[in-house]
Simulated scan of single mutants.
Amino acid sequence: MPVLADMPETFTSSSAFSCGVHPRELYAWRDAGETVELSRGVFRRADAPLAEHPDLLAVSYRAPRAIVCCVSAAAVHGLTDEQPVGVQVAVANGRHPPRIDYPPTRVFRFDPKTFELGLMSIEAAPAEQIRAYDPARTVTDLMRLRHRLGESIAHTALNRYMTRSDGRPALLLEYARELGVLGPMRRALDVVSAR
């Protein structure tokens, strides 16, 4: 019979069941405080190191094809002090969007042709990677969604990105061209560089 120590630090109920864990045992671990239920069907062992981004980790287990985006990605990359009300993730148009009540999740639909542009992995917990957009793609998405998410968030992210040692204006312009926001990005970059 499987024991909790045999399970990975974060796991789903279906992966536990496939290892031979009975549902009664799984929920007994949770009720005894030996695991924490991060989201419906996503568990983390209580003896595991703290996850730096537990909500992002939970959502990535629930929606493995989704990509952390917009303000959630900006917060991870240190491009904003804003904390979104819910985890913001992107799915490709034509894909079934995840329905996640907890943690609260907001889904954006992105063009499949550019969906993986700027994709990277970030560590949400020790040795546990999740999918997220890189800083340049994040800034570009905030710029193109500035009317929905706020001009100030987009401009703050751009300013912070440009002060980073790895800030690359050419990459911003490349992404902006691909994502159809080249004009606004050029104007915003002109303002930043004039300071």
Rank of each mutant, 00 (worst) to 15 (best):
M185Y: 07
R109F: 12
T163S: 14
E82R: 15
G20A: 11
L56D: 01
L182D: 10
V139M: 07
N159R: 15
Y61T: 00
L182V: 11
A136Y: 07
R144A: 09
Y175W: 06
E151P: 00
R146I: 00
Y61A: 04
Y133E: 07
R45F: 00
C69T: 15
S14C: 07
H147V: 10
R95I: 11
H22C: 01
T163D: 09
V85K: 07
S15A: 15
R109M: 12
R65P: 05
Y133A: 12
M1R: 14
Y61I: 00
S14T: 14
S152T: 11
R44L: 01
D190G: 14
A28F: 09
I130K: 04
F11D: 04
V36G: 06
W29T: 04
H22Y: 01
V191N: 09
G33Q: 13
E151L: 13
A75N: 03
F115C: 04
T114M: 08
D111H: 13
S13E: 02
M185V: 07
P98N: 09
G33K: 14
Q129F: 08
Y102K: 10
R195T: 03
L171I: 07
D111Y: 14
V191G: 00
F17C: 01
A63R: 00
G183Q: 13
F43Y: 15
R30D: 02
D134P: 07
A28S: 11
L171K: 13
P184I: 10
M185A: 14
D141M: 14
S39C: 04
T138A: 03
V107K: 10
L26S: 08
D47L: 10
Q129C: 07
P84D: 15
R40W: 06
A63T: 06
Q83K: 09
V59Y: 07
A170N: 09
G180P: 03
V192K: 11
R131I: 01
R30F: 03
A194H: 08
E151R: 15
A75D: 05
D31E: 13
T10L: 05
D166H: 12
C70M: 15
V59N: 06
E116T: 15
R44C: 00
T35Q: 02
V71K: 02
R131K: 15
V42S: 00
L145R: 03
A154Y: 06
L142P: 00
L119S: 10
L4W: 11
L189G: 01
R106E: 03
L79W: 03
G20S: 07
A48T: 05
W29D: 08
M120I: 13
S165N: 06
Y161R: 09
H53E: 03
E34V: 05
R109T: 14
M7L: 10
V181D: 00
Q88K: 09
V89E: 05
C70G: 02
T12E: 00
G183L: 01
S165L: 12
H53Y: 15
S72M: 08
P54N: 02
G33M: 11
T35D: 04
S18Y: 04
I67W: 03
P104A: 14
T114Q: 03
R131Y: 13
G180Q: 06
P84L: 10
R168N: 05
V87C: 05
